[in-house]
Design a protein around this nucleic acid. Structure first.
Lengths: 218, 218
DNA sequence: CGGCCCATGTGAATACTTTCACAATAAAGA
DNA sequence: TCTTTATTGTGAAAGTATTCACATGGGCCG
């Protein structure tokens, strides 16, 4: 019974996020020249359960060898294919404030194949200036430049107050994948994929935990 | 039957994260001078369902008025108490590279009451320099300075390769809450709360979605 | 080359989360 | 004050995700 042709294997968001973790762990293991890894050890490294690791991978095929574990390099390559990171993605950064310019210099993105090709801002003082080898473009030229440079993803690092306005422009320019750093909920059409990174949320989660933890001694 | 005294109301991680969203939405509504909000409208603004909003809030009490909705300011205040953000948290930033220095200038944190009081690095060229009014301290002075400044949370923005080493030092200094930006899984004792922000993960999620989406036309 | 060991792959069981659906009830207007 | 309307709060139902547990089968040693 062929699995490939089945229409609607619905993979959950949590499984995809864990694939990212496996990918990262496997990259490290590959550097350490480890050839195989068991679900048990992979789970330990990422604080998961072995059953979880095996179940996640089983959605995509049988990559392991019973009694031995998974071949590190091969599994890494297969996950790269699944995630679509076995290629280069051209991305554009919109906004060159604190966060935007930090991300332009963030090597982790490049290492994963996410190449920032263009940088935009609407501040006349910034336009034309050089950021890590990239000239800041005028946001008014965005539609044309995105098209000319075959940009497929956009990272939004603009103030919350203008974020919805800008994202509308990005959508109008035909972009289908957006990563938003502005602390506000944005609305996009159903064929556009939007993910948001909310850095305050994690601090608030820590705040909640410290506030509501069981007192140290009863 | 008193709810307050019940021991083990277990609140799920997703509920807490949504409280952050409600809090953000309510802050906005308060600025717009809106006095009440229904679960329906709150849900629409954060792309959730009305039942979800009501269920989440019901874990903590009855804040609404039937037929009318929730009082914006009061609900905001109650959520602030639940999250523990109705106070100031003193935090320290460790690492003043790209990400670290961007976060020092990130106004959203301060706005939420997370005040960066100290900044550390191990690079002699950076130590003593001024970052947005803060002098970069030597990481070797960390234990003493964290204690003296009543720091309760630490944000880690150091290279992955040294992150586990640094986090061990942070734990040794008695810190119980850490937000990690290094792209690696860190291990801490069970009484220390660690959250990680993985910015590549969201790009990889977008990559997966674009790669595996149903083709535009059949 | 036979048997033992070990770790996978996976249905079934369990645990958790979300949604449904409706009784309860406050507000507003007649 | 009564009726209508709107929206909450919440058990019960449905839907997802995780964990269990074990049959399966490849590798390796003697």
């Amino acid at each position: 019974m062929p699995k490939k042709s089945e229409g609607k294997r619905k993979i959950s968001e949590s499984t995809i996020k864990r694939l990212s973790l496996y990918y990262r762990a496997l990259s490290l293991l590959e550097k350490e020249n480890q050839e195989t890894i068991s679900s048990k050890e992979l789970a330990r490294r990422e604080k998961l359960t072995p059953a979880q690791v095996r179940k996640d991978l089983s959605f995509f095929g049988s990559f392991g060898t019973r009694g031995l574990g998974y071949p590190v390099s091969e599994l890494k390559q297969r996950i790269a294919e699944i995630l679509g990171v076995n290629r280069v993605w051209n991305i554009a950064m919109i906004g060159v404030g604190n966060i935007g310019s930090a991300l332009v210099s963030y090597k982790e993105f490049q290492k994963q194949g996410f190449i920032i090709k263009l940088v935009f801002d609407n501040d006349q003082r910034k336009i034309g200036s050089n950021h890590k080898g990239l000239i800041v473009s005028d946001i008014r030229d965005m539609p044309r430049l995105l098209r000319e440079n075959h940009i497929e993803m956009v990272v939004l690092a603009v103030p919350a107050i203008v974020a919805q306005y800008i994202v509308d422009e990005v959508v109008a320019a035909g972009i289908k994948a957006i990563l938003n750093f502005a602390p506000i909920n944005l609305h996009v059409p159903p064929d556009v994929y939007l993910r948001s990174e909310n850095m305050s949320m994690e601090l608030e989660y820590l705040s909640f935990t410290l506030t509501n933890r069981r007192p140290p001694a009863e």
